[in-house]
Write a protein that binds this DNA or RNA. Sequence first.
DNA 1: CGCCTTTGCATAGACCATCTATATAAACTG
DNA 2: CAGTTTATATAGATGGTCTATGCAAAGGCG
Lengths: 112, 112
Amino acid sequence: MNETKGKNELLPGTLEMLILKTLSIQPMHGYGIAQHIRTISRSVLTVEEGSLYPALQRMLVKGWVSAEWKVSANNRRARFYTLTPAGRKQLGVEESRFSQVFGAIMRVMKTT
Amino acid sequence: MNETKGKNELLPGTLEMLILKTLSIQPMHGYGIAQHIRTISRSVLTVEEGSLYPALQRMLVKGWVSAEWKVSANNRRARFYTLTPAGRKQLGVEESRFSQVFGAIMRVMKTT
DNA sequence: CGCCTTTGCATAGACCATCTATATAAACTG
DNA sequence: CAGTTTATATAGATGGTCTATGCAAAGGCG
């Protein structure tokens, strides 16, 4: 039945936080965001396009990022995303939320 | 009703791991599992019935737990779940998977 | 006694984030 | 010129979690 595969490598719910964090370093286009997360996580986390672009759209609508068409380092047209002040605030919210939930999970996992 | 109630308190994908861990302490019925997780996590994690029972059914089918009807400490009929050897093995798999993914997330979140 | 709360199991249906698959296109590569 | 890489985007499937609901029995209380 279910053999291997690592679908859902990403803990659902953390994608937007990872994107926000990535953009807090510098503005970046979607493809670059995916590469950055994959590289830094040593390929443990892979952001699929079908997850990435819808997430960026949601975040645009919510005002956490702004977007601008430019030319990439490889001379291709690309949409660069920049963290807004609201996005930076949201990053803080998600970071503290994540550590709270993670702490709770660890308490359960450490009980004997 | 529930105003500030955050949905998705639980990181999706961790529920089965938390159940396996709880049952590794001792056999327990569903209601008790939910209470245990809620108590230990200091109410950060709330396992809803609509999540719990389907999860237990899946785990039964996969052979990670076995079930037996008994009488609870409160003198009510209750279905007690016991971790099987396969379930114990699965707990190890999910623990290492979780720490791997968590480590990857932390690497992304710690980059400057 | 009648009522309410707690305990306890279970399912149906909604929701929604993520994945798979596909389409498009320009630039570089051999 | 064919193939790979870069880059964006959408449609549709998947699946786990949540909301809502139903049932039922035990125990406490006035």
